[in-house]
Nucleic acid binder design. Structure first.
Lengths: 246, 246
DNA sequence: CGTTTCGTTGATATTAATCAACGAGCGTGG
DNA sequence: CCACGCTCGTTGATTAATATCAACGAAACG
């Protein structure tokens, strides 16, 4: 669904001539909704998909906007959020490699989305996508599966926000984020955090100060070490215990 | 999907002889997933569906249990929740008439469910349901639609729990609950609350005391009146303002 | 090199939780 | 039928957790 990596200007066209399908070569394909496509469908897809690279802090779409396209993220991190009228923000999730934005196929976006770092993505016009769903029950099945997975994930978020304290939230977040990233990068105790403390705070229903203090506390207790753009988990055992406290 | 109402013992068999399909006579059919079924399918359904009436405070299923059946609620209220090991409870939703439990088709239940009051429901063995989905793309479409709607609803819950204070939560809950109930009963300013204050607290991520105090405060301010088993909304305008404060 | 953003830390304020007491309603059993 | 014991909701007093306000240093940025 996305070409493997950026090419020198001249090389790009060359690739298009040689490759049967750029989407079929896509590294994130098997992680994404595109895993549901067969070879011919991928070729069809090549003609409708728009590959885009977004700089950091770019809006993908805004809450309430009519849905004109759906997105598959192939690199980078996107924050999905809602703003209250007074500026309070709740981040509902971080979309990373393989994420599909638009599982609910709403008429208007039910969330806003912004790139955090540089994001590569595939944009599919929604009418095209709907047409494909109508043709292929298999795709609808995959879409339902993705929606179901998302629903289950967000149920966890509800429990976190409703009934867990600051320490449990941070510990849970670090462990869960590591887990998510482990799907690609070899499983490491170093958890890269491309999002800011403010993003983490708005995701966990806390303030930036509480996030900072709790991370500092964990560091003081030697559960983690803060490293540039992330944390290294020193004691996953104990961290897990702090996540499921009591 | 469910017969209209309970019958005298002898009458029940009589009805079965006369009616083409009990499910086709179901009052809640058009509100539920069964709206996706055609006439012949409803007849098929009659043979696999188990109609059950549960007394209050009865477990429908427990978190982690293998999913053996899915449920359609035709009367009463069910609480859907997760328990933490120390007894903290987070209610994720209240299922009422027309609700379908099992939209994500998981292998094991991702929530626990208990009747709050007397609940009438239709139980469909999961393998039967899966088989129907495999045959009918239309049903899968409906299921996806339900899952999507649920996902959108729970996103609202995340925003509520993450970024709204006690007053906003209570006001939002009362208005939203009224809205949900308005689908059946003629739209009234009286909101029946079958669930206890503890249930409301566990749904809104608060304590029972905070719920009680906030409701009392709204009553003192003449926004609502507490009536037996519910509240009457006196000033929906202002209540709405309190819900979306700032 | 100034300026802005970001993360950290400290002091204080505020919200909601906790602890505690009480009264009303309800079901049970004497 | 009444008395007892529950559960439930309410309210008050206090505590604890987290938010808010404020200051600062370091890194990033133009």
């Amino acid at each position: 669904m996305v070409v493997q990596q950026s090419h020198a200007p001249g090389q790009h066209e060359a690739n298009e001539r040689f490759m049967v399908s750029a989407c079929s070569q896509c590294q994130t394909r098997h992680l994404s909704i595109c895993a549901a496509f067969g070879t011919e469908e991928l070729i069809t897809l090549d003609h409708v998909v728009q590959h885009r690279t977004l700089p950091p802090k770019t809006t993908l779409f805004d809450f309430g906007q009519p849905v004109d396209a759906v997105y598959s993220i192939s690199e980078g991190t996107v924050r999905l959020f809602r703003l209250l009228s007074d500026g309070r923000r709740q981040i509902v999730g971080f979309a990373i490699k393989g994420a599909f934005l638009g599982v609910t196929l709403p008429a208007t976006f039910d969330l806003s989305a912004e790139s955090i770092d540089t994001v590569r993505m595939c944009r599919i016009p929604v009418q095209t996508f709907r047409a494909m769903i109508d043709e292929k029950p298999h795709l609808l099945r995959k879409l339902h599966e993705l929606t179901a997975r998302e629903l289950q994930a967000i149920q966890g978020q509800v429990i976190l926000l409703g009934r867990r304290n600051a320490e449990e939230r941070i510990a849970t977040f670090l462990l869960a984020h590591r887990e998510r990233l482990a799907r690609f990068s070899p499983c490491s105790v170093t958890v890269p955090l491309v999002m800011s403390r403010t993003d983490i705070a708005d995701y966990l229903g806390l303030t930036i100060e509480t996030v900072s203090r709790t991370i500092s506390k964990f560091a003081r207790e030697k559960l983690i070490v803060v490293v540039p753009d992330g944390v290294r988990l020193l004691d996953i055992e104990k961290l897990n215990h702090r996540a499921n406290e009591a």
